[in-house]
Write a protein that binds this DNA or RNA. Structure first.
Lengths: 192, 192
DNA sequence: GGCTTCTCTTGACAAATGTCAAGACTTTTT
DNA sequence: AAAAAGTCTTGACATTTGTCAAGAGAAGCC
């Protein structure tokens, strides 16, 4: 149940057996079927969520009913709407399972306690936040400066394992491009 | 020299006179003329930078010579390339002054020391990081889901004070839209 | 096995956006 | 005061991207 998590965490810092046990004691294990929601717009996000198996997506649905994927979360990724969680406000976002998945839930309060009681965990969290900010920053750069074709080739070179795991229309949604355009862009680049 | 900074910081937490003095003792004051670079692509970013007066921009120049603005930094904003700073690698970005400005520089090492010795400063920093992440996240949402017109109206409603302080082409560059398109979009929306 | 749903592609066309160039106006520099 | 540089707008046109619709194939479901 926690093997994947332990393995993940051991790569992120130095934790004692006691640390692992403490953290695991406040984690909740949950299985999700493909297409099952974990969070729906309007819910308040309660948990930091670690994906130990499978694949989630975090997305926004606009007034026209279009989905816009904010994040892909395969194994060893964290997801959840931090803003909703911190402010206690309903989320604008949805999270659901792209594949059958297994996730670990960590309540906001417990997360804060872990940060306070386990220095290594606190360091890991702030390190993760920094890295995450760098990823968001880079995504903005891509988003404002590249064409559809360039975005696509950037994506497949940066996330090859995601590229061949999700349908093309989800990549399109992530990149802010229509699925048809991406299909054409890809068939063009094959020719080259 | 530090009045603006003190005023800013006092709104962000509870600091003793001693805390202020300690922080100020490691700050470097610097004036920038309009158009003066503070960071050029290829430099390693050394400082956390607080804008106490004026206006900076943080931008990327692509192979075609096009500028893409990643961040506007008016008074009371922090700027700098964190990634370059943390990794000690040359930055891809430029920072320069849009107006004559006054900035305060805080060396990475001193910043870390402040975080360790002044708990309130540490809290302030992590709070700022969280808020910044939320801003980046929202910008991605805007960027992948809205049209040029929607992006523009979002921008002017969210950042009215920036809108009438910078030339239109910089807003265009920030939004990832051409200056001409933005000019047209704006004249359309005036008619409504 | 057969039905349904998903996924991807392709065509035809529409709409949005970019590019280039020119001109008017303002601000800055000398 | 004159010159230079920057800003904004507009037109004409090209290019990119989106939309709608159809169809083929694959995957999943009962």
């Amino acid at each position: 149940m926690f093997e994947a998590f332990r393995k993940y965490l051991s790569g992120k810092g130095t934790f004692t057996t006691h640390d692992y046990e403490l953290i695991e004691s406040v984690l909740t294990f949950k299985k999700l079927r493909k297409r099952q929601y974990f969070l729906q717009a309007g819910d308040v996000c309660q948990f930091h969520t670690f994906v130990s198996k499978g694949f989630l997506r975090y997305y926004y649905v606009d007034e026209k009913g279009q989905e816009h994927i904010m994040q892909f979360a395969p194994e060893n990724y964290w997801t959840g709407d931090r803003e909703s969680m911190y402010l206690g406000l309903p989320s604008k976002y949805n999270i659901d399972a792209v594949e059958d998945s297994e996730i670990l839930l960590l309540k906001k309060e417990d997360h804060d306690i872990m940060c306070k009681t386990i220095p290594a965990f606190n360091d890991f969290v702030s390190e993760t936040l920094k890295k995450n900010a760098a990823v968001l920053h880079e995504r903005i750069r891509i988003s404002i400066s590249l064409s559809a074709e360039e975005k696509y080739s950037y994506f497949i070179s940066k996330y090859p394992s995601i590229s061949n795991r999700v349908p093309l229309h989800m990549i399109a949604s992530y990149l802010g491009v229509s699925a048809e355009t991406l299909s054409r862009v890809r068939s063009q680049s094959v020719k080259k």
